[in-house]
Amino acid sequence: MLIDWFTVVAQAINFLILVWLLKRFLYQPILNALDAREQRIAAELADADAKKAEAQTEREEFKRKNDEFDGQRTELFNQVTIDAATERQRLFDAARKDADSLRTKQQDTLRSEYQNLNEEIARRTRAEVFAIARQALTDLAGSSLEERMVEVFVQRLHELDVEEKKKWALESSSATVLVRSAFDLSTAQRTTIEGAVKAMLTAETQVKFEMVADLVSGIELLMQGKKIAWSISDYLVSLEKGAGELLKEKAKPEAKTEPKPETKSR
């Protein structure tokens, strides 16, 4: 007999026991491990997806912030550029203003110096001219000239009009008349002058003589602030005054001619 029924039963029981044992020790643990791994992988994938989504969100946020930052930077840069340009313009204007002011001051100074120099030159020239003239006239002054001067002075006293003479006469009653001359008058000349004065004023009039070197070849009569004179110095003073006025008038138009402003630099 090929079939042994005891063995059949025993093998069936053995098989069922093996099924139970393998279920317990093989299939269940392996399936559990597989499930655990699947769950873990699924969890990791979900986590990765979540992280990816988070990263995407953060990326977008970062991009947005970056764009915003770029915008702000551009805006600030533009603002700063405008401010810098404004400040530059302001500083440039201030500098130009200062430069203009300085230049004006400098021009004024220069003008003033120029004027002073001109005046000084004119003054010196005038002084020199008159000094030379004085010197020449002094050198030339001789007895004949002095006599002539005395004659002319006396003639002038005579030629005074009546009204003038009355004024002088009224004031000369108790006064002393001072006669100043550039040269030493001789006794004859003094007598002539004294006679002419007394004739013009009164006989009691006291006449005092004085020599003054400044008077260039001249004689003058002084009494209580009044003066009758003739001297080359008068002419020279008059000429000097005229020359001074002429120079002043000449300096004015020159001062008005201001130097051209400098070209505006960048």
Partner: peptide
């Protein structure tokens, strides 16, 4: 037959037990 069956059962169960004792879900 029964003895060889037991031997095979032993191999299967012990083998499975030895391997599944240290299963990793990693």
């Amino acid at each position: 037959t029964i003895v060889t069956t037991w031997a095979l059962m032993l191999v299967l169960v012990v083998g499975a037990r030895l391997i599944t004792r240290k299963l990793a879900s990693d």
